[in-house]
Design a binder for these strands. Structure first.
Lengths: 348, 348
DNA sequence: GTAAAAAACTAAACCGTTTTAGAAATTTTT
DNA sequence: AAAAATTTCTAAAACGGTTTAGTTTTTTAC
């Protein structure tokens, strides 16, 4: 039976005829180092247990300036990539006795700023952030004050801080390379807006690299930024445009799961068939892909590993901060895997 | 630029040559009712703004006994149903100035208890809970102490408290009724373990009701509880068993999105075709269903409405509690919608 | 038997708010 | 011009922990 009643340190101290100080020390495992006798320690422990004492987190936080909570900001917790990431982060932090506060920034710069302020204000001990912003202004303050945080998924090339990412460029490169090796030459790429986000930039870069390596000329006409609010409509529009122009590519590389979903829908509704009429490879692996007809070849991100690494770095930073040592920024770049299914036609 | 530095009430008071009390009152909008002059109020507001004052949440929480945070416990935030629900809850609470703490209980009773204790201990102002437990012991304590909480999605029939659910029985009834109206007689139902969860009980109930209404005899052989850890394997097993027994049903009603995913995979891997060999209708609508070949008929839950209702009830309870009025338990039962696609064969 | 050392414990300050009870300054009343 | 009423403001307590700077008690040394 879970109760909401409060037993305070003072209650225990009173009942035992000792001071709050002593009780506090014992319950924080500092009994020995403060020379509290074994017998007394035992008495305290027992009573605390039997009275079901739980320290008041506000009082503790107020005095110690920390909350045992960490914050996670992603663009949208209902996006399967982020919800799986959040789950892994939750598991990882709770193993270390921390709690997690998950927030969705909704790709809004304003909201992201507000959430950051809110988390700081709630005195979270650290933040894991997949940032929507184009500039680094908002995190420079944190950086300057040695506030522990890790950038995840989306990063800034010109800003030196803790980061955990996937090799987006290589992942995209391998995806497009795979398409080319199947004989394709007319290959389009869809990235999602806002196009400044590093994942999208890098994935587009990887696409270009692959084409270059195989000496296929780049074509602006095949590189599209899809507005995230109307993916389906935009893809429909682009496809019909290509069709009327007789410029239909034979394959599309799609830079995330959301564009993939919209694209699959659009392709189907326009009566095109995968891979006969058009081949497709997506970044992000979601349940849908393995069950789609045909199953969609995609680039898998090591979500759990991203989460674990980010949490490890963050907690290290939090610990180091306590010892007031200097913080060394660490970067982790994890590898993706391509899972080949049947969405790419073997040409010629 | 977001900073971590702390400006306290005392800083502002000092700078202005007034008391902390005054500053606190003004910033909490209680300037007028405490007769603080307009001029002074303005001076305080301005300085607070320019010094970027943010009240310390620990101090505030310690004094006032509340956190402006509410807790949400679901079984797994990476389940698309719950991640969408969580997103809606997040939006709803933040509109009222609350923050949200999302936790996954992992269908573990022990973990759920721990999370509840943790949230209480963190002094969340209220909890929205989709409980995994079979008994109500863990929430009786909360109830007795008038701690605000709302049961969502999964409820207890014999326990009177705030609830927001969907009419699972009717939703399932309509789904199975639809199947029957297409001429099916041999209809199986899959529910997920643990089978005591109210959603699963009610959906199975709805299935039975539909069969009864159409005078189709019930058959235990067609009612299966699928262990959530190995959905795919179990469904494969069941299907092959039915096949060898020459008892293959013509349709399956599947009680949630997870079983649906596993079942679709199993059906495909066993070389069966939907709806020719077997028809299927699922509870929960996920992206996959509209894109699957054939698109899967399913029962849509009004996720946003569930979230909004739960939040509204919870916040009402929190307010009422402040006024120490008595709490009236409210129940909301929302309607589902069936979206007909092409996964059910028209027979005879 | 007393001084020094060691062991066991504690009073009070502190963290930053909100709130209570009341004081000081100003205005109105007589 | 003093008393009363009103307006404006404040000192101090409270919330429940942790930590600092001790104090008291017991043991050891000589």
């Amino acid at each position: 039976m879970i109760k909401n009643k409060k037993v305070s340190l003072a209650d225990i101290a009173m009942a035992l005829g000792v001071s709050k100080t002593l009780v506090s020390m014992v319950l924080n495992g500092k009994g020995d180092e403060n020379g509290i006798s074994k017998k007394t320690q035992e008495r305290v422990m027992e009573l605390a247990e039997s009275m079901n004492y739980k320290p008041n987190q506000f009082a503790r936080g107020l005095r110690m300036g920390r909350s045992n909570t960490i914050g996670l900001i992603v663009s949208d917790i209902s996006n399967p990539f982020y919800s799986r990431l959040a789950r892994s982060v939750e598991d990882a932090v709770s193993e270390s006795g921390y709690n997690l506060m998950i927030c969705s920034s909704d790709e809004s710069e304003e909201k992201e700023m507000k959430l950051l302020e809110m988390l700081i204000n709630k005195q979270v001990d650290g933040i894991i952030l997949s940032s929507t912003l184009d500039s680094t202004e908002h995190i420079e303050g944190l950086q300057n004050e040695n506030f522990p945080f890790v950038l995840i998924d989306r990063i800034y090339n010109d800003f030196e801080t803790n980061t955990v990412v996937v090799d987006n460029k290589l992942g995209a490169y391998e995806a497009v390379d795979f398409i080319i090796n199947n004989g394709h030459k007319k290959i389009a790429a869809f990235v999602i807006s806002p196009a400044h986000i590093s994942t999208q930039v890098d994935r587009l870069e990887g696409y270009k690299d692959a084409l270059k390596k195989h000496s296929i000329p780049l074509n602006q006409y095949y590189q599209k930024v899809i507005p995230r609010e109307e993916i389906y409509q935009t893809v429909c529009q682009i496809l019909t445009e290509w069709k009327t122009d007789h410029m239909m590519p034979t394959a599309i590389f799609v830079a995330n799961n959301q564009i993939a979903i919209g694209s699959l829908e659009a392709i189907r509704d326009l009566g095109l068939s995968i891979p006969k009429d058009i081949s497709i490879v997506s970044f992000d692996d979601i349940d849908l892909f393995k069950l789609y007809s045909p199953p969609i070849t995609s680039v898998i991100q090591p979500i759990n590993s991203i989460a674990r690494n980010a949490v490890e770095i963050l907690l290290d930073n939090i610990k180091i901060k306590d010892n007031s040592d200097s913080l060394i920024k660490v970067h982790k770049c994890l590898q993706t895997n391509i899972v080949v299914r049947n969405s790419v036609l073997k040409l010629g």
